[in-house]
Design a binder for these strands. Sequence first.
DNA 1: GTCTATAGCGAGATAGAC
DNA 2: GTCTATCTCGCTATAGAC
Lengths: 210, 210
Amino acid sequence: MPDRQDAVPRTKEYATGRVTRRAIIAEAAEAFAEKGFHGASLRGIAREAGVDHATLMHHFGNKTALLLAVIEWHDAQDAATSLPAMDFTVEGVVDAFVGVAERNRATPGLVQLLSTLSAEAGREGHPARAALQQRHQVLVDVFAAIIRLRRDEGAVDDDGLSPEVHAALIVSTWEGLQVYDALHPGDVDVPELLARTLRRELGLDGPLSG
Amino acid sequence: MPDRQDAVPRTKEYATGRVTRRAIIAEAAEAFAEKGFHGASLRGIAREAGVDHATLMHHFGNKTALLLAVIEWHDAQDAATSLPAMDFTVEGVVDAFVGVAERNRATPGLVQLLSTLSAEAGREGHPARAALQQRHQVLVDVFAAIIRLRRDEGAVDDDGLSPEVHAALIVSTWEGLQVYDALHPGDVDVPELLARTLRRELGLDGPLSG
DNA sequence: GTCTATAGCGAGATAGAC
DNA sequence: GTCTATCTCGCTATAGAC
């Protein structure tokens, strides 16, 4: 695998840096998913993208920020099509998120990277902390709203937990399942267990049997 | 903070290397919990322990192995007192593990490190993968045995999941809660939510009330 | 044999020149 | 916006001390 110096043609748009950024992100997505976060090197990614190591650093600042850019780019492809199409009903929300879990099976490398990042960002001052907190918060807000709705409908009974805490418990289970699945391949079926959890917690398995 | 070269006296036991190992582990535990896995440097830990960087490498091989040694050392202090005292009843198991979760609150740095390690080890070939798999398996075995017991007793109904998968779901929830807690401090009460989850899944909240 | 030290490689990250 | 130079780091290989 010698020089791919000219994989990105030096067009006018190239001079703006956008092509450079996108080329780096594309190479980084491949490298991270293939070799893992620590296994991939910024020098190698930069070389494959046809730029210098310091140029990559100029655009992204640090390795974690580059990984975040990769994840955002990956999310944008998924969310742009799936989430807007989600109707805000209990069944719609469950189907949408189970669908995300199912599509995640196609990119286990990125899921594992995201799990690692979530755990790493648990430390104050981590460069990705705010982004990961917001990422969780989006899920918690959706689930908490559904839980409130279902309690008002009488479909689930109030267990004494605030809807937000109950939602956090669901999100934690989902994330924990992804970690467990990566560590014990084949032992658990993440989309199925997520679906079971959601149906039970959101009262879709019959009147107050959950 | 200049040289602490002579923090460990050159006694006869020192020559066996055990004192050196323990001194390194003690410094590593402090450094990892304080600065995180990547923030702490082996050179710094070695310097604080009064040995050379290469000496540390000789004893532990790599940074991850040192972290594992720290965690094993931490576990040994906890497990040696709590788990043998656990009676193998449903209440006993729940109390024992909720107790572990409560004691974990005292060392959030190490818990966060372990969460990160679990996520990282989700990649094949990771140096700590086998150790983390076994660590999970111990928990799954205990919970699966209890679930079997409770099903035989008729205290919980068979939900169609194997006891092992159901146990894996519980372990995943616990681990996920620890990650969530580190990322959103104060939003969730890990021991309380673990206790709720265990009581519900193991049928301690009344006859088949789920 | 057991333990410790030296030297070097490639990595992430920073600073400054162009 | 890009590159050169430099820092410290994890890690390996190898040799020396007890």
